[in-house]
């Protein structure tokens, strides 16, 4: 059977990143660069707990802030373009961020040993969980708690004014502008929030993995997060949940197809798109999938 304690952190982290993509997709754009903010959050969170001895909660808040700030800075120019130019720019962004992560080198001594990111050698020894005696069960609880927090947060975002505006902008930016909705500002807010969600996921990932390096934030990470969301569908926040469950729980956790998980995942995407182009939980009406 399935080892819930082992699978929960992976599931939660994947879900949080998928939720970040979901927010961007809601604005009508595909981003292949959310792993950049995920990485920014991971490095920020890891540095704060290992090098400065912060507690987990403030460090995670700062992780989210790091994701949000970097997304806001990049979003200022990014949210002015749309369609495939947006997608391509996020692709460039993701690859660029990876290059930046390789260069991060900042060492200091804490508790009598050298800590901090070591450039191409990665960032090891993020052992907050170990040092504070947080066992696997507790780790899983923290991870799932944060994932639920993000699901609720993203759900609330869609219920409130900015979320409504976002749907209007995604439907038709010109029409939205004619009823006094600023499309760029609306999308920038969504993009920044998506960055915050990704950053939070990154902070969690850094502490869960205890070792991070630039290749953890490769293009395929972002691509998977988008794929989860599109598999699940965009009709509601349950879409990313369903998509992530399908891959992590069935393919990774239950090992339905053994070592051929990624092969099955790839064919699943193609098959699903042919059978249900709008995802598991999709809308019936038109508009982007």
């Amino acid at each position: 059977m399935i080892d819930i304690v082992a699978i929960t952190p992976l599931f939660s982290i994947s879900l949080i990143l998928a939720l970040s993509c979901y927010l961007v997709l809601k604005s009508g754009e595909i981003s292949f660069g959310q792993q950049a903010f995920f990485g920014a959050g991971a490095y920020a969170g890891g540095i704060l707990t290992t090098m400065f001895g912060w507690q987990l909660v403030p460090a995670l808040i700062l992780s989210a802030a790091a994701g949000a700030v970097s997304a806001a800075i990049i979003g200022v120019s990014l949210c002015r373009v749309s369609g495939f130019r947006f997608t391509l720019m996020t692709l460039v962004l993701g690859e660029f961020a990876k290059e930046v992560f390789v260069k991060i080198e900042w060492r200091s001594v804490a508790d009598g040993r050298a800590v901090g990111p070591e450039g191409p050698l990665g960032f090891s020894g993020i052992d907050y969980f170990y040092n504070h005696g947080i066992q696997h069960g507790m780790q899983a609880a923290i991870a799932s708690g944060l994932a639920i927090l993000c699901v609720v947060g993203v759900w609330l975002y869609g219920r409130t004014d900015p979320g409504r505006r976002l749907i209007a902008v995604a439907g038709d930016p010109v029409l939205a502008a004619s009823v006094a909705i600023n499309p760029i500002r609306t999308r920038l807010l969504a993009f920044t929030s998506a960055g915050a969600v990704a950053g939070l996921g990154g902070g969690l990932f850094a502490h869960q993995a205890t070792y991070i390096e630039a290749s953890n934030f490769s293009l395929m990470v972002g691509v998977h997060a988008v794929a989860y969301t599109l598999l699940g569908g965009l009709a509601s926040v349950l879409g990313p949940v369903a998509g992530t469950t399908l891959d992590i729980v069935f393919l990774e956790g239950l090992r339905v197809v053994g070592a051929y998980r990624m092969v099955a995942f790839g064919s699943l995407i193609v098959l699903m798109l042919i059978l249900w182009p709008r995802g598991l939980i999709g809308t019936r009406s038109g508009g982007p999938p």
Partner: peptide
């Protein structure tokens, strides 16, 4: 997105 799936599938 289908080409994306195809890419993952064939590469794996």
């Amino acid at each position: 997105i289908a080409t994306l799936g195809f890419w993952i599938l064939i590469e794996e």
